[in-house]
Design a protein around this nucleic acid. Structure first.
Length: 434
RNA sequence: GGAGGGAUGGCCGAGCGGUCGAAGGCGGCGGUCUUGAAAACCGUUAGCGGGGAAACUCGCUCCUGGGUUCGAAUCCCAGUCCCUCCGCCA
């Protein structure tokens, strides 16, 4: 949600800055402002009427105590009550429409974000690592994995359909190794507090992060009389941890890390990344979330991005850090860095992490505030999130970047302690074939 | 799944439908006393939104949302969450 004061006082600037966003905001800004004006016109009238009612009520009480008749006063009270009802009804409908619009407005891009219309306008900030030079034709992970007997799409289809995968043996172990490696790195070296949240979230929680009301189609909703959805990312539970709370500013920033599975309907992505693990309905992710004061949030953003990068560095995966342009940013983000890992099968870098500062956008929706020095007026906190990193895509990157001519895959050094010292994944002895 | 009990300020806890935004206690803050501290005593202490330079003032807020009423912390309905017992269960 945008700052309503900004909308009131600097409408043209807001309009211009929102206009640089990709899919636009699809809302009528003028209507929103109009509704805000209407709302603020109704309020004084309503409050005056309420005051009058209260006053009459007190006089009735006094009259009754004195044993006098209060019939006239009761009559006046009835009139006030009717007037209040009328104003309340008006306010309710105006407010309903106003907040519906307000919740669909995306965040304002930060000044440092390059204006652009698509990912082609994103800016490379830095790159790290050497792309592997193969002396053979590298294969894509959807061939490497099944050949090693650690990745199975066909059996997954029996269980749940397309866009699901089964990991077995060293594959499952590798995923678990990645999760543990990332959690260990972030908790013991980067100072994050580990969280294991629910994997389902309420509509209220999803509204706080900005997934609802606009992007319901991207979510899996639980059937029946449940107001619950499968989480599309641990950002949702982590950013709602302190919803409707007032934090002590002296404790900020606070850092959380969680491993969770993530669930996405991938509506509208038919024909995109249909092969392999890149785009699945369910995938594992280690997520980083921070709560910060407005003065520190940009430093925190840089730090959080570096924390995600550190994962790729230690895994020895070549990556680059991209500053997303206005047209390619997500709904809630004010500024986003994407980390892109090199995938030989695509001959390209693919997103493996996305690190955003939403400033007060989510905090305003979710009522996340803090008090400086634990005292004074509450202010909205800033929230930040980033993948640290996507497990499925990391696994893909390892299979493809560490593949050998004979089809085996080397295990990155940092993961070996998590793989019982194992250094390489080779085809398993033939097991029960289909 | 069944049967009960509960939700009030930072915390605990009282509250006949009528100056109740709410007794009392704890905690916090200020003070008296003291060389200093403790104890004791006195005073003070909810949040949010609007108006005002300020003193101050108006509205909302006793889990949430409806309802009854001139008037609701208090009565009615629905829901949420917590607790106890029974059943089931990793």
């Amino acid at each position: 949600m945008l700052d309503p004061v900004l909308l009131r006082t600097r409408l043209d600037e807001v309009r211009t800055r929102l206009g640089t966003r990709g899919n636009g905001f699809g809302g009528d800004l003028d209507r929103l402002v109009e509704l805000d004006v209407e709302r603020r016109a109704i309020l004084p009238v309503l409050e005056t009427a309420r005051h009058a009612r209260k006053d009459v009520g007190e006089r009735i009480a006094r009259a009754r105590r004195a044993g006098e008749s209060a019939d006239d006063l009761v009559k006046a009270g009835q009139e006030h009550a009717a007037a209040i009802k009328e104003q309340e009804t008006k306010l309710e409908s105006v407010e309903a429409e106003r907040s519906a619009w307000a919740l669909k407005l995306p965040n304002l891009p930060h000044e440092s974000v390059p204006v652009g219309s698509s990912e082609a306008d994103n800016v490379e900030v830095r790159a790290h690592g050497e792309r592997p030079g193969f002396e053979f034709e590298p294969r894509p992970h959807w061939e490497i994995g099944p050949a090693l007997g650690i990745l199975d799409f066909e059996r997954a289809a029996k269980l749940a359909g397309a866009r699901f995968a089964v990991l077995t043996g060293a594959g499952a172990r590798l995923a678990r190794a990645l999760i543990n490696f990332m959690l260990d790195l972030h908790t013991s070296e980067h100072g994050y507090t580990e969280v294991e949240p629910p994997f389902l979230a309420s509509s209220e929680a999803l509204t706080g992060t900005g997934n609802l009301p606009k992007f319901e189609a991207d979510l899996f909703k639980i059937a029946g009389q449940w107001d619950l959805y499968l989480i599309p990312t641990a950002e949702v539970p982590l950013c709602n941890l302190h919803r409707d709370e007032i934090l002590d500013g002296r404790t900020l920033p606070v850092w959380y890390v969680a491993y969770t599975p993530c669930f996405r309907s991938e509506a509208g992505s038919y024909g995109k990344d249909v092969r392999g693990l890149i785009r699945q309905h369910q995938f594992d992710k280690v997520e980083l979330v921070a709560y910060a004061t407005p003065e520190t949030s940009w430093d925190v953003h840089e730090a959080l991005t570096r924390h995600a990068e550190e994962v790729l560095k230690r895994l020895g995966l070549p990556y680059r850090t991209m500053l997303l342009c206005t047209g390619d940013m997500g709904f809630a983000a004010s500024k986003t860095y994407d980390l892109e890992v090199w995938l030989p099968s695509y001959g390209a870098y693919r997103e493996i992490s996305s690190c955003s500062n939403t400033e007060a956008f989510q905090a305003r929706r979710g009522g996340i505030r803090f008090r400086r020095d634990g005292r004074g007026k509450p202010e909205h906190a800033h929230t930040l999130n980033g993948s640290g990193v996507a497990v499925g895509r990391a696994l893909v990157a390892i299979l493809e970047n560490y593949q050998q001519r004979d089809g085996s895959v080397l295990i990155p050094d940092v993961l070996r302690p998590y793989m019982q010292g194992r250094e390489i994944i080779e085809p398993a002895a033939p097991q029960a074939k289909r």
